[in-house]
């Protein structure tokens, strides 16, 4: 298909709309002070906390998201469609709403909070709360991309595996997961990126304390109050990390598309 010229024009406007704010931000960076700004104790603590919690959240996304995607893609039960929509809800939910919902679930007076308290687990204002908030918003990314990949790959290889005597667990381990591994990886990378950017739910649910709950986005939000230079510098760091992650996701995502084409 030859793309009409006016489509290029529209696409150009769209691209500028996305890119210009980034350029504008880069222009505001105080380069002379850049390194000291991003290497301050608070900044480093926020960055490390962000990386640590996002990694933990990604791990949880994989542990629970892969089974969720399998159940959604490979089984058929009453109410499945509704369940899928609900599971994907955090994608469209404003993060603050997510935070409020989590508060009423894991908070001290929440649905499960008292049970946790009895078990001696305190979630409120802890790093755990940050990880929970990040997992909540990031999980749908993994489930969505993996479910699509599972449907594309289809279940024919799994059927062959079963007739060769492989138990369902063996089929999952030796056939299904290797086949959708690229999708698991790209889904995990997307989840990590989403977790890294998580702000609203964390602010509402986990609080904000340096080294414990104040992730990079929260630190940026706070620094903006008094020290716009630091806020801009940290924003740039976050953008760079995000760009690296997104390009990684694209690279790992490609083989799965190639394979999908070969199958069809």
């Amino acid at each position: 298909m030859t793309v009409p010229r006016w489509v290029f024009a529209m696409a150009g406007i769209g691209a500028a709309f996305v890119l210009l704010p980034l350029v504008a931000m880069v222009l505001r960076v105080n380069w002379a002070e850049f390194v000291p700004l991003i290497s301050s104790e608070a900044s480093v603590a926020a960055l490390l906390l962000s990386l640590r919690t996002s990694l933990a959240a990604t791990l949880l996304c994989v542990i629970f998201g892969v089974p969720m995607a399998l159940v959604l893609a490979r089984t058929d039960f009453w109410g499945q469609k509704v369940l899928r929509s609900l599971v994907l809800l955090p994608l469209v939910l404003p993060p603050v709403v997510g935070g409020i919902a989590l508060l009423y679930t894991f908070g001290r007076r929440g649905l499960l909070g008292q049970t946790f308290e009895l078990l001696g687990i305190e979630i409120a204002f802890s790093t755990t709360a940050v990880v929970i908030a990040q997992t909540f918003v990031a999980l749908p990314f993994l489930v969505l991309s993996l479910e699509g990949a599972l449907r594309t790959v289809g279940s024919r290889y799994e059927a062959v595996g079963a007739t060769l005597g492989a138990s369902p667990t063996t089929v999952l381990r030796r056939i299904t997961l290797p086949l959708v591994l690229p999708a698991v990886l790209s889904g995990a990378v997307l989840s990590f990126a989403r977790a890294l950017g998580e702000f609203g739910a964390t602010l509402t649910f986990a609080g904000s304390l340096q080294g414990t709950t104040r992730t990079l986005p929260l630190e940026i939000y706070l620094q903006r109050e008094t020290d716009p230079d630091t806020a801009v510098a940290l924003s740039l760091v976050l953008v760079v990390v995000a760009v690296i992650i997104v390009s990684l996701a694209h690279r790992t995502g490609e083989p799965s598309r190639r394979r999908a084409r070969a199958l069809s």
């Binding site: 024919r156 290889y157 059927a159 062959v160 595996g161 079963a162 007739t163 060769l164 005597g165 492989a166 138990s167 369902p168 063996t170 089929v171 030796r174 056939i175 290797p178 086949l179 394979r259 070969a262």
Partner: peptide, 21 residues
């Protein structure tokens, strides 16, 4: 009895070799 406990192999029109092995 589930497929993997039947001792029955099915060879289809397409080879369906596992692409990653």
């Amino acid at each position: 009895r589930p497929p993997h406990q039947r001792g029955v192999s099915l060879l289809a029109q397409e080879a369906l070799l596992f692409p990653h092995l």
